[in-house]
């Protein structure tokens, strides 16, 4: 367990890492290093990082258990909120730089282009999670209800990967990598749940009902 000072340093370093990609895109756009289609490069780049950070957020619980490092939980909120911020920037890049507030075109995209439909849904699912990522909100909702609400992170991650799958034209290698990572992260949780059920059954001889 790191000391409070060490934990502070770790959080500061993580924050710097979280901000770095956004700063890089800003600098690259400013200096014209994003190639022939900078709008596409920024929009996709921000989306990539939103997905990566969302999956990293889902890594915390398995890592915490395997390494027996309970303090990792103190980093999860920062990762989750950063994932949301990147998703918000990704959406903003689409609405502003790509469509330039052409609401008819945006509405048409959400209705008729499946990859945008699920991308939009992903964002909608992330909004209540970001809105309740404060100590005060956890107190107001109560731990159990808060936890239940935040299981929305799972469907959000699934939809985010689907969004990527349906976006690519033909070469699905990159979305496959994310799908495999997500399958692993969800798989380990299912495995734990099965184990926990088994443990409950053995501990009371199969006579008591699961909690």
């Amino acid at each position: 367990m790191p000391s409070p000072a060490q934990l502070g340093a770790i959080r500061l370093a993580l924050l710097a890492l979280c901000v770095a990609p956004a700063l890089w895109f800003f600098a690259a756009a400013w200096t014209d290093h994003l190639g022939a289609n900078p709008v596409e490069a920024v929009t996709r780049g921000l989306g990539d990082w939103a997905l990566r950070l969302l999956l990293l957020t889902l890594c915390i619980t398995p890592l915490r258990r395997w390494l027996a490092w309970p303090w990792l939980l103190k980093l999860r909120r920062m990762l989750g909120v950063t994932a949301f911020v990147y998703a918000l920037l990704h959406l903003a890049a689409y609405v502003w730089a790509d469509q330039f507030f052409d609401w008819d075109a945006i509405f048409d995209d959400i209705l008729h282009r499946p990859f945008i439909t699920v991308g939009f849904l992903t964002f909608v699912l992330l909004v209540p999670l970001a809105a309740t990522s404060t100590n005060a909100m956890i107190r107001r909702l109560g731990g159990r209800r808060w936890q239940k609400l935040h299981r929305l992170a799972y469907p959000a991650a699934i939809l985010a990967v689907l969004h990527f799958f349906w976006m690519v034209k033909l070469d699905i290698r990159e979305p496959l990598v994310y799908a495999a990572a997500l399958a692993g992260l969800l798989g380990v949780r299912l495995y734990w749940r099965q184990q926990a059920r088994g443990a409950v059954r053995t501990s009371c001889g199969g006579r008591c009902s699961p909690p």
């Binding site: 022939a36 709008v39 790509d98 349906w166 976006m167 034209k169």
Partner: peptide, 19 residues
């Protein structure tokens, strides 16, 4: 004729900001 991934009603001319 719309495409499931791209609106074909507009286009981005590379080098221009709007569509």
């Amino acid at each position: 004729v719309r495409h499931p991934r791209w609106s074909q009603a507009t286009e981005r001319r590379l080098g221009e900001f709007g569509k």
